[in-house]
């Protein structure tokens, strides 16, 4: 193998080709992808919250994001002030969460996970249909007061909006992580998820805990809904975009917040980079499936995700 000294002495063509590669552009794309990834993580956190505490994979999370965004934007369009609309939406989402827990999840509490998953699938249909029935099916623009001006950071052009959105998402993720790990309620959430029966025997009020979890999931939905809505416009396909959180969950494990953060960054970055660099060979549009294929490829190597707990089958 030729040594580094040999390269320096001979300055082969390889160097010229390398310097032709637009590193700046790549960095822009990468950063853009990472920022999008943080937002994916935010949505994924909503899934993890519910899963970690009740063992239910809430497929309806996407439609909850849509519902939150739609409610907020419709209230604002009808003249309600920003903070008031925010509070009203939060109240509505919490109510929604509690209703879900009471009417759908409680009757199904002893069913196998697949049944609960199907139920949340049905739930997503109800919420999507309900949201649009209530507020209409048009596309709404969402103004959050953040300009989408490009900032220049060390020569790279980065969207100001992306940066702030990522910042907000990261803050929420940090908040929720801290909540789960360091507060009493957070611990009881995890206890309830680990062993429902044991949690009951030590006196944890499960319905209250689950209600609180759904309220938290609702909060996450609002933040995610607002951010994604501002980015893409509030419309039906929002719930589809949000479905991208699933590969993030696959990568990071369904029960690990840290995993979801890293998974989100990975997915966001890989997706963006592949769309820009590989996409043109196929005429574009890779973004619709690339994340899923990454997840699939990854699963084949590590069936429990990056950080998910490997289930040891106890016979």
């Amino acid at each position: 193998m030729p040594t580094w000294a040999w390269y320096k002495k001979n300055k082969t063509n390889k160097f010229i080709v390398m310097s032709d590669f637009d590193w700046l552009f790549f960095s822009e794309v990468l950063v853009g992808g990472l920022l999008a990834g943080v937002m994916y993580s935010l949505v994924a956190i909503g899934f993890v919250l519910v899963y970690k505490t009740s063992g239910v994979f809430n497929f309806a999370q996407g439609s909850m994001v849509l519902f939150a965004a739609l409610t907020f934007v419709s209230l604002v369009e009808r003249g309600v002030s920003f903070p008031l609309a925010l509070m009203a939406t939060f109240a509505l989402m919490t109510l929604l969460g509690l209703t879900i827990e009471r009417t759908v999840l409680r009757p199904l509490v002893n069913q196998p996970p697949i049944t609960l998953f199907m139920a949340t699938l049905g739930l997503s249909y109800i919420i999507e249909g309900g949201a649009q029935l209530l507020w209409g099916a048009q596309v709404h623009g969402l103004e959050l007061g953040i300009d989408d001006t490009p900032l220049e950071i060390s020569g790279m052009l980065i969207s100001k909006f992306d940066l702030i959105a990522a910042g907000i998402s990261a803050a929420m993720v940090a908040l929720l992580t801290a909540f789960f790990r360091y507060t009493r309620i957070g611990l009881s959430f995890r206890a309830a998820a680990d062993d429902t029966l044991a949690a009951l025997t030590i006196g944890l009020k499960l319905p209250r805990i689950w209600g609180a979890v759904w309220a938290a999931a609702g909060l996450v939905s609002i933040v995610a809904g607002l951010l994604w809505g501002a980015r893409l416009g509030v419309q039906f396909s929002l719930s589809l975009v949000v479905l991208k959180a699933l590969p993030v969950l696959v990568l990071g494990g369904f029960d690990s917040i840290l995993g979801v953060i890293i998974g989100g960054l990975l997915i966001g970055a890989l997706e963006k980079v592949s769309e820009v660099y590989i996409g043109p060979f196929f005429g574009g549009g890779i973004e619709t499936w690339f994340a899923y294929v990454i997840a699939l490829a990854f699963l084949l190597i590590r069936p429990a995700g990056l950080f998910g707990q490997k289930l040891i089958e106890r016979a």
Partner: peptide, 24 residues
């Protein structure tokens, strides 16, 4: 037709949940 489509989704989702609860 828009209302119909949305109502269909709601009814479908409700049916799923009803069946899962009452007659899995």
């Amino acid at each position: 037709s828009g209302v119909l489509e949305m109502s269909q989704r709601i009814v479908l989702g409700t049916l799923i949940i009803l069946f899962l609860i009452a007659e899995p």
